[in-house]
Amino acid sequence: MIEFRSVSKTYQDGTAAVEDFSLEIPARRITVLVGSSGSGKTTVMRMINRMVDPTSGTVEIDGVDVATREPVQLRRGIGYIMQNSGLLPHRSVLDNITTVPRLTGVSKADARRRAFELMEVVGLERSLADRYPSQLSGGQQQRVGVARGLAVDPNILLMDEPFSAVDPIVRDELQQEVLRIQAELAKTIVFVSHDIDEAFLLGDQVVVLERGGHIVQQGTPTEILANPATDFVATFIGAERGKRRLVVSDSTPAIGDDRVLVDGGGYPVGIIAAPGGRLEAGNPNPKSRSVSNKTDQAGDA
């Protein structure tokens, strides 16, 4: 578990990026920090691995104040995946993935073996191992970034808008990849995004931030969607407009008890399958990707 206790950060130039921020991030779940640009998401996230030190307040991992940890050691135990992959341009894919394990004294052979495993996990062909980052597509680079983040088998993964620079189709793929990996590995993931759809897709817990790192709402995607706390959240998740605001159509004839739904633009988007309708009713409980079959274990980060 990661815990923020009234954390504030004022940068040297006087920017109050985060003010009095408190949050619990449960272990082995995906927590998505979402908010508009400049709301302090990155700043909050980087306080976990001490890339940013809070001006006041404390950040604890499993009850240990990170300020007491040596930054380099701390960072080696936390996976970090960023928007532009941050790969070393002068090193091959394989060398990039093995960088951190090699720093921590893992033998070259072991590091390479593990790197090949990880390339498979993130869906990269072995033949790409000797390429340089500049020879990969954006999506492939991000996969390498994810593999590098996983290389030391960290309990915590920090992902800062990792997929915002790739095209929508690749983004979908990568998001599914994250869900698949998470179902398998169950890491504590802190995921920063400015895309509410991504947040709702990935997040077990979604935290909506406003300028200054103020939490406007936090909860499961269902809770937030069902009950936006403020007009800001409602607008942000697009509750009033477009595809989130669905209306039961009365102009289209009902098919048995089933009802056609139309979105804010008036286009049909789906059907409510009523019990006894032509389509069999699905699970009435909204799905969450939470790894709910795994119990919360204390001391799991």
Binding site: N49, V72, L74, L88
Partner: peptide
């Protein structure tokens, strides 16, 4: 960004200089 990422994954300042900045 490259240097920032190197630091974020746990390179020491010396390692950043020798393994990232000097080669580049």
């Amino acid at each position: 960004d490259t240097i920032d990422a190197a630091r974020a994954v746990g390179m020491t300042e010396w390692q950043i200089v020798v393994r990232v900045e000097l080669p580049l």
